[in-house]
C-alpha cells in the first residue's frame, strides 16, 4: 500500500466518522421522540430519562388520535400544504421564467425584491392578514391559510425555479419555436419537462414550508382549518405536558413528509444538481 492509498483510506475513514456523527446529531432527536412515543406515561417523564422504553406501548398513539380535532387537523394540514404548493408553483414558474428569459432591469429588481420579502418577519404580515381575510369572508379556511403560507414559500420558489431555468439552454426553446411552438408552448412542452426535477424540488420545499408552519396557523385558524402543529403544541398546557401523546402525534405528523422525501429522493438530488450547474 503506497502513501497515496493510505492517505485516501484515512480521508475516507475521517469522512465516514464525520458523516456518522452528523447523522447521529440530526437523527437522535427524532429517534428519541420516536422511542418516547412508545413509553408509558410515567416513563416519558422519568428522571433521569431513559432512551429505550422498558415497556413498549401504543397507548400514546391511541390517546393522540382519539383526541378531538386531531384527524381533522391532519386533513387540514394536507389540504393547506397542497394548496399552498400549487399556489406557489403557479405563480413562481411564470415569474421565474420571465425573470430569467427577459432579463430586464425590473426583473432583476423583482427577484431581489422577492428575496427581501423573504426576510420580513411573518408576524408583520400576519396581523394585517387577519383583517384582510375577515373582510374577504375567508377567515378560518384552508384557502386563506394556504395564501398566507405562499407568502413564505413563494420567494424561495421563484429563486429556486430561476436557477433551474437558468440551467436550461435557450437553444432548446428556439428549436421548439422553429417547430412551431409559441413561447408559452415552449415553456410548457420543453422547459418544464426538462426542469421536472427542479419543479419537484420546489414543490417539496413549498410543501414543507406549509406543513411545518406554526405562526400563521396560530393567528389565522380556529375550528375549521386548524392544522396539526397547533394541535401538537396544545399538548403542552399551563397545567402540564403530555409528552407521550405529543411525541406520538409528532411522529405521525412526520411520517408523510419522510415518505414524500424518500419517494422523491431521486428527483430532489437530480433537481438540486441541475440547479447547481448553469448550462
Amino acid at each position: 500500500m503506497n502513501g497515496l492509498e493510505t492517505t485516501r483510506i484515512s480521508s475516507r475513514v475521517i469522512l465516514w466518522i464525520a458523516l456518522v456523527l452528523l447523522v447521529v446529531l440530526y437523527g437522535f432527536p427524532f429517534l428519541y421522540m420516536l422511542l418516547t412515543s412508545f413509553k408509558t406515561p410515567l416513563e416519558t417523564i422519568a428522571v433521569p430519562p431513559t432512551v429505550l422504553p422498558s415497556t413498549w406501548t401504543i397507548e400514546n398513539y391511541a390517546s393522540a388520535i382519539g383526541r378531538d380535532g386531531v384527524v381533522a387537523s391532519f386533513v387540514n394540514s394536507v389540504v393547506t400544504a397542497v394548496l399552498s404548493t400549487l399556489i406557489s408553483l403557479v405563480l413562481a414558474v411564470p415569474a421565474a421564467y420571465a425573470v430569467t428569459r427577459f432579463r430586464t432591469r425590473f426583473g432583476r429588481f423583482f427577484i431581489v425584491g422577492a428575496l427581501v420579502m423573504r426576510m420580513v418577519p411573518p408576524i408583520v404580515i400576519g396581523v394585517p392578514m387577519i383583517a384582510i381575510f375577515r373582510n374577504l369572508g375567508i377567515s378560518d379556511t384552508s384557502f386563506a391559510l394556504a395564501i398566507a403560507h405562499a407568502t413564505i414559500s413563494l420567494p424561495l420558489s421563484i429563486w429556486l425555479m430561476s436557477s433551474f431555468f437558468e440551467a436550461v439552454p435557450e437553444e432548446l426553446e428556439e428549436a421548439a419555436k422553429i417547430d412551431g411552438a409559441s413561447r408559452l408552448g415552449a415553456l410548457w412542452r420543453v422547459v418544464l419537462p426538462v426542469t421536472a426535477g427542479g419543479v419537484a424540488v420546489t414543490a417539496i420545499f413549498a410543501f414543507l414550508a406549509s406543513w411545518n408552519e406554526f405562526l400563521f396557523a396560530l393567528l389565522l385558524t380556529a375550528t375549521r382549518s386548524q392544522t396539526t402543529p397547533i394541535v401538537i403544541a396544545n399538548f403542552q398546557t399551563q397545567f402540564g405536558l403530555d409528552w407521550g401523546a405529543m411525541t406520538a402525534l409528532a411522529v405521525l405528523y412526520s411520517v408523510p413528509v419522510i415518505l414524500l422525501a424518500l419517494v422523491l429522493q431521486r428527483h430532489i438530488v437530480a433537481g438540486l444538481t441541475a440547479g447547481a450547474v448553469k448550462g
Binding site: 387537523s73 386533513v75 389540504v79 378560518d140 384552508s142 384557502f143 375550528t223 375549521r224 386548524q226
Partner: peptide, 10 residues
C-alpha cells in the same frame, strides 16, 4: 376550500 370547509374540528 372556497366553500369554506377545511376538515374542521367542528
Amino acid at each position: 376550500t372556497l366553500t369554506g370547509c377545511g376538515a374542521g374540528g367542528g
